[in-house]
């Protein structure tokens, strides 16, 4: 086991998307360890129970039943212990107002779910790079394939 195994957390209620994300992450072969939660409640629960081994990056879907992505982001950014956790918003919609709001609330990147699998792989790779290179300049807030 590599000591510096990268831990990635995906908060996504759609199982298709979960599968696609896992496939894409697998294919880019970055050796990241992926954990998946399916809604906001689960996400907050998970984070409270893995204080010692916080994931490096959280791919957060906005549209989730119960506690949605925005609420989760705000809650996470309110706690200093999660400072090292990079939050990458992973959403279907693209609303510039919302995007702006997310940035203000401390998201690291915004990824609009691409329509092509190859593009999905690209943006995930970009995001993983960005997490790894932290705190190097991450360039654009919105990551595009």
């Amino acid at each position: 086991m590599a000591i510096n195994l990268m831990r990635i957390l995906l908060a996504e209620d759609d199982f298709d998307d979960c599968e696609l994300f896992a496939d894409a992450l697998d294919e880019i072969n970055c050796g990241a360890d992926l954990k998946t939660v399916n809604d906001g409640e689960q996400l907050i629960n998970f984070l409270t129970h893995c204080m010692e081994s916080l994931p490096s990056g959280l791919f957060l879907d906005l549209n989730m039943p119960g506690k949605n992505g925005m609420e989760c982001l705000i809650e996470i950014r309110q706690k200093e212990i999660y400072n090292s956790l990079e939050v990458i918003i992973f959403s279907t919609s693209f609303d510039s107002q919302i995007v702006e709001e997310l940035r203000k609330n401390g998201a690291r990147h915004y990824i609009r779910k691409p329509n092509e699998f190859s593009q999905l792989k690209k943006v995930i790779a970009l995001a993983v790079d960005s997490i790894n290179n932290k705190p190097g300049n991450s360039g654009n807030f919105e990551l595009k394939p």
Binding site: D16, L20, E116, F117
Partner: peptide, 15 residues
């Protein structure tokens, strides 16, 4: 969301 979502999936899976 609800319209784009299935559409995107159509596109992705078609892909």
């Amino acid at each position: 969301h609800d319209l784009q979502e299935p559409l995107r999936k159509i596109q992705t899976f078609a892909n």
